[in-house]
Computed example of a mutant assay.
Amino acid sequence: MLTKADDYPIHQTPEPIAFSGTDRNFYDRYFFNGYDPDGTEFFAAAFGVYPHLNIADAHFSVVRDGVQYCLHASRILHMERMDLSCGPIRIEVLEPLQKLKVTVEPSNGFAAEIVFEGRSFPVEEPRFIRRNGPRAFMDYTRLTQNVRCTGWIEVDGVRRDLATGTTGTRDRSWGVRPIGAPDPQPPVPQTIGGFFWQWTPLNFADRSVFFHINADPDGKAWNTRAVIAPDGAGPDGFHETEHAVMEDVSLVAGTRHARGGTLNVPLAQGSASIRFEPFLTFLMRGIGYGHPEWRHGGFKGELVVEREDIDLATVDMALPQHIHIQALSRVTLSLPGGESLKGMGVFEQLIAGPYRPYGLGYA
Results as ranks from 00 to 15, higher is better:
G118W: 03
E92K: 06
V104A: 02
C86V: 15
L94M: 00
V104Y: 03
A112E: 02
F116C: 11
V104C: 04
E92R: 08
R90S: 05
I89L: 14
V115N: 03
Q98M: 15
G109N: 11
C86A: 15
L100E: 06
L97Y: 06
Q98A: 15
E105T: 11
E105K: 10
R119E: 02
T103W: 05
S107F: 14
N108A: 07
S107W: 13
E92S: 10
R90F: 05
F116P: 01
R90V: 09
K99A: 14
T103C: 09
F116D: 13
S107L: 14
F110P: 01
F110L: 01
L94A: 03
I91R: 14
S120R: 00
V102Q: 09
I114V: 14
P88H: 05
L97A: 11
S107E: 14
F110W: 04
E105H: 10
E105W: 03
E117C: 13
V104W: 06
I91T: 13
E105C: 10
F116W: 03
A111G: 01
V102S: 05
E113Q: 07
R90H: 06
E117G: 07
N108M: 06
A111R: 02
A112F: 06
G87S: 08
E117T: 14
A112W: 08
A112H: 09
R119C: 01
P96E: 10
E95I: 08
A111H: 03
I89R: 12
F110D: 03
T103V: 13
F116H: 00
P106T: 01
A111P: 01
F116M: 14
F110Q: 02
I89D: 03
K101N: 04
G87H: 09
P106E: 02
S107P: 13
R119P: 02
I114K: 00
S120W: 00
V93M: 08
K99W: 11
V93I: 12
V115F: 01
L97E: 11
E113H: 06
V102H: 13
E92D: 06
E92V: 06
E92A: 10
P88Y: 05
